[in-house]
Amino acid sequence: MSKTANPAARTIALTLQRRIVDGTYPGGMPIRQAEVATEFGVSHIPVREALASLAQGGLVDIQPNRGAVVTTLSADQCLELAEMRVALESIALKHSMKRLSAKDLVAARQALARGAKADSLEERSQWNWAFHRLLHAGAARPFLLSQLETLWKHADRYLHYTWKNAHYEARSDSEHEELLAAVAAKDEHLALRLNKRHILGAATVAIDLIKANEVAEQGGA
């Protein structure tokens, strides 16, 4: 989702984004400008700006005569995002591991602990990305890290979907612990291998869920 200067539009965009990511607004659902404007007590102008921002982030399509429609989860997009994450996070980890301090590692472990105790998937997600962000803190590659932030925002929807439908949290936590141990030991080869397995493993589960859901929907049509 791109940034918007209008505070009302940003509030609306963030709220709608959360609803799309957590599945409250499923793929194919139309988002009516009039209904959103009424809910937030605003004119259509900030609503249009918010929807345009979500469209830039790939969460909605703006369609002629239909307005904004929530995009559907895509197995192809899920794999593409995972492959891009592996490529960019591998570069970030290589540069970061040499510079990470004991304080950085403590902060990463605290993020894991807080994520494991989270009361909601949204909170868990925030700590999940905080953990990955901390592992890359020493990379000193601001453009690379900004690209990763964009990737994570797109991937977050698929991560929520996997946690919600496959109860993937325990496996994710275990893999995070292994990854952190490898990073702390400065074992670059192992850390890169574990991170790749972690990302592609979660993507594979999400893709299987998406395809199974597509088959079920076709069977019920």
Rank of each mutant, 00 (worst) to 15 (best):
R124Y: 09
A155H: 08
D76I: 13
P7H: 00
L93Q: 05
T72R: 11
I199V: 10
A111N: 10
L121F: 03
L209R: 03
L121N: 09
A102D: 11
A5L: 11
A191C: 10
N128R: 14
I62D: 02
A170P: 04
Q33D: 12
S2R: 15
T71W: 07
A140T: 09
L190N: 12
E175W: 13
E178C: 15
F131I: 00
A8W: 08
A113S: 14
S90K: 07
A111C: 10
H44C: 05
P64T: 00
S174A: 14
L73I: 06
G27D: 02
S174M: 15
E177S: 13
Q33G: 13
E178T: 15
L14Q: 01
I210R: 03
T24R: 12
A68L: 01
V21E: 04
Q147L: 15
T11E: 11
Q126V: 13
S101G: 02
G58K: 05
L100F: 01
Q147K: 15
M97S: 03
P46Y: 02
C78G: 05
A37V: 05
N6W: 00
G58Y: 01
H95Y: 15
V21L: 08
H198V: 02
R19P: 07
G41W: 01
D104Q: 05
E177Y: 11
I31E: 01
E177H: 13
Q33Y: 06
L112Q: 04
W163E: 06
A9C: 00
W163Q: 11
T15W: 04
A50V: 09
A68R: 03
T162N: 06
L134M: 07
A13G: 08
T15F: 05
V69E: 00
L148F: 02
L190M: 14
I45W: 12
A181T: 11
A34R: 14
R157H: 03
L112R: 09
I12D: 07
W163C: 09
V36I: 14
P46G: 05
S74F: 04
L54C: 05
A82I: 08
T38W: 12
A130H: 07
E35H: 10
E89M: 12
R66F: 10
L179V: 06
M29V: 14
H167R: 14
T15P: 07
G27F: 01
A181V: 06
A216S: 04
E178P: 14
D173A: 13
L194H: 00
T11D: 15
N165S: 02
